[in-house]
């Protein structure tokens, strides 16, 4: 590690290109929508930077507030379901024989590389009214001679949650896996030796020790789920729109950029709020190491 002061040329050569890129294509655009969020729309296209709070106040209109609450609710439920599936899968993989671990991990991670759109489309193909799921149900129903009406599985909130869980599950499993791998397994044996049952061991030892990984996993699922656009767009019905869909409509349909900017800024605030919560929670937790000192 060298001081920037003593190696000026090398420092500026490595510092400038990425910094400029961030400045031009991230900070400036976000600054612009930050300013837009306090601006007023004049006529059809003109926008004046007038420092008004109208857009933010409008975001608290019951119509939009309910979208916010719904988005938070859907994201939270997605996170919870991902945790309930991801936790047993992660600790199971972590305790698998060494030769199995990389294979199982790869199986779990590979879908992350597959296009989001393709995965969502695959879900549509399976769960639509004339899809494979209904087709299989019908086959089973016919087997038992029960009359069968195809179920409407898509275009509702449940479908959105299903899609979000489907897409974000790997983000939950990976940190949980790393968390379970990271601590000394004799803690489990010690707890068992002292008389604790499996369930007690998980609630009293495993969960508290894995808490930082659990929080990381939840943040990694919650934030993208909260801002998701494609999944509610394709799988949701007219009433299951999330914030991102409303934002998109403000820009591409309603053409109300200042209001759309205000909504985007609020989504960004929510994101950073969630990150800040995690940060303060980790700081408050005053034991950092999960291993005992040697």
């Amino acid at each position: 590690m060298k001081s920037a002061r003593n190696h000026k040329l090398a420092f500026w050569l490595t510092f400038c290109p990425p910094t400029l890129w961030m400045l031009i294509f991230l900070l400036v655009p976000i600054l612009i929508i930050g300013i837009f969020s306090f601006s007023a729309k004049q006529g059809l296209v003109d926008i004046s930077a007038s420092w008004v709070l109208d857009n933010h106040i409008r975001a608290f209109d019951p119509v939009y507030l309910s979208v916010f609450f719904k988005s938070i609710g859907i994201a939270a439920l997605t996170t919870l379901i991902c945790f309930l599936i991801g936790f047993p899968v992660a600790i199971g993989i972590a305790s698998a024989p060494k030769s199995w671990k990389p294979v199982l991990l790869m199986i779990v991670v590979l879908p992350f590389w597959v296009n989001l759109l393709i995965r969502t489309y695959a879900l549509i193909a399976v769960f639509r009214t004339r899809g494979f799921f209904n087709f299989s149900l019908e086959w089973v129903a016919n087997l038992f001679g029960i009359p069968f009406e195809p179920l409407t599985l898509l275009y509702n909130d449940a479908a959105v949650i299903l899609g979000l869980v489907y897409i974000h599950l790997p983000f939950m499993i990976l940190p949980l896996y790393a968390g379970f791998e990271g601590f000394n397994k004799s803690l489990l044996e010690a707890a068992s030796d002292l008389g604790a049952q499996q369930f007690k061991i998980i609630t009293a030892i495993v969960l508290p020790i894995m808490a930082p990984s659990i929080i990381s996993g939840c943040i990694l699922v919650f934030i993208p789920a909260l801002g998701s656009f494609l999944t509610p767009e394709l799988l949701g019905g007219p009433s299951s729109q999330m914030i991102a869909n409303v934002i998109e409509r403000q820009f591409l349909a309603a053409n109300d950029w200042p209001f759309g900017s205000a909504l985007s800024m609020m989504l960004i605030y929510l994101t950073f709020g969630a990150l800040a919560l995690r940060y303060f929670w980790l700081r408050r937790r005053n034991f950092s190491s999960t291993e005992n000192k040697p």
Binding site: M22, F25, L26, P29, G227, I247, E248
Partner: peptide, 21 residues
């Protein structure tokens, strides 16, 4: 931290910010 911002904040926000920009 700033380097990680494009990964963290929702894609929709980056999308519309760049659209405006």
């Amino acid at each position: 931290g700033i380097i990680l911002v494009p990964i963290i904040i929702p894609e929709i926000c980056i999308g519309i910010a760049l659209l405006v920009f």
